[in-house]
Simulated scan of single mutants.
Amino acid sequence: METASVKELKTALNDCTNSELIELVLRLSKFKKENKELLTYLLYKASDEDAYISNIKIEVDTLFNNINTSSYYFIRKSVRKILKVVKTYIRYSKKKETEVELLLYFCMHLKKLKPSINRNTTLKNLYERQILFIKKVVATLHEDLQYDYTVELEKLKN
């Protein structure tokens, strides 16, 4: 089956009635968990971004507390999983401030992790890549926000 382009889908959706659109969205939400999560964000959480960020931070706290620290193998695996979850939530929001806030929070937890990530090259590189990514995104923000987030980044370096 050939997939239609976004433009074709948009045109077809414009021709649908309100009830048909509701039916299509509900049917779409039955197929993937991510579709349901995105709909939940758009319908309930998008209006209060601060509460959304707080909820994600609580989830990140829980995930970091549940890491098996018996070996670096398990730590790497868990950290990658946590980063994947954070990136998914960032994709839902599409706001640069949310992205920076959540990645800073992730990096802060990663830096505090015991045993230290500095003893493992993979974890250290992952941390440094995220810091570079944060710097890139911060450069696109308003000057006041740039200053605030740069201060936070400096705290992470020390």
Results as ranks from 00 to 15, higher is better:
Lys7Tyr: 06
Lys7Trp: 03
Glu8Val: 08
Glu8Arg: 05
Ala12Pro: 06
Ala12Trp: 11
Ala12Gly: 09
Ala12Leu: 13
Thr17Asp: 11
Asn18Arg: 12
Ser19Leu: 09
Ser19Ile: 14
Leu24Met: 11
Val25Met: 10
Leu26Trp: 06
Ser29Pro: 00
Lys30Ser: 13
Lys30Phe: 10
Phe31Tyr: 12
Phe31Gln: 12
Phe31Thr: 13
Lys33Tyr: 11
Lys36Pro: 01
Leu38Met: 12
Thr40Val: 11
Tyr41Glu: 03
Leu43Thr: 09
Tyr44Val: 08
Lys45Pro: 00
Ala46Phe: 00
Ser47Asp: 10
Ser47Met: 08
Ser47Pro: 02
Asp50Gly: 08
Ile53His: 00
Asn55Tyr: 11
Asn55Val: 01
Ile56Leu: 05
Lys57Ala: 03
Val60Ile: 14
Leu63Thr: 04
Asn66Pro: 00
Ile67Asp: 04
Asn68His: 05
Ser71Phe: 09
Ser71Tyr: 01
Phe74Lys: 11
Phe74Glu: 13
Arg76Glu: 13
Lys77Asn: 15
Ser78Met: 09
Ser78His: 10
Ile82Ala: 02
Leu83Phe: 10
Lys84Ser: 14
Val85Gln: 13
Val86Asn: 03
Lys87Trp: 01
Lys87Ala: 12
Thr88Gly: 14
Lys94Ser: 07
Glu97Ile: 07
Glu101Asn: 07
Tyr105Phe: 11
His109Met: 12
Leu110Thr: 00
Lys112Cys: 05
Lys112Leu: 05
Leu113Asn: 01
Leu113Gln: 06
Leu113His: 04
Pro115Phe: 06
Pro115Lys: 01
Ile117Tyr: 08
Arg119Gly: 15
Asn120Phe: 03
Asn120Met: 01
Asn120Asp: 15
Leu123Gln: 02
Tyr127Gln: 00
Arg129Val: 10
Gln130Trp: 00
Gln130Gly: 09
Leu132Ser: 15
Leu132Pro: 00
Phe133Val: 02
Phe133Gly: 02
Ile134Val: 15
Ile134Trp: 03
Ile134Glu: 00
Val137Ala: 04
Leu141Val: 04
Leu145Pro: 04
Tyr147Val: 13
Asp148Cys: 10
Leu153Ile: 06
Lys157Trp: 05
Asn158Ser: 08
Asn158Lys: 09
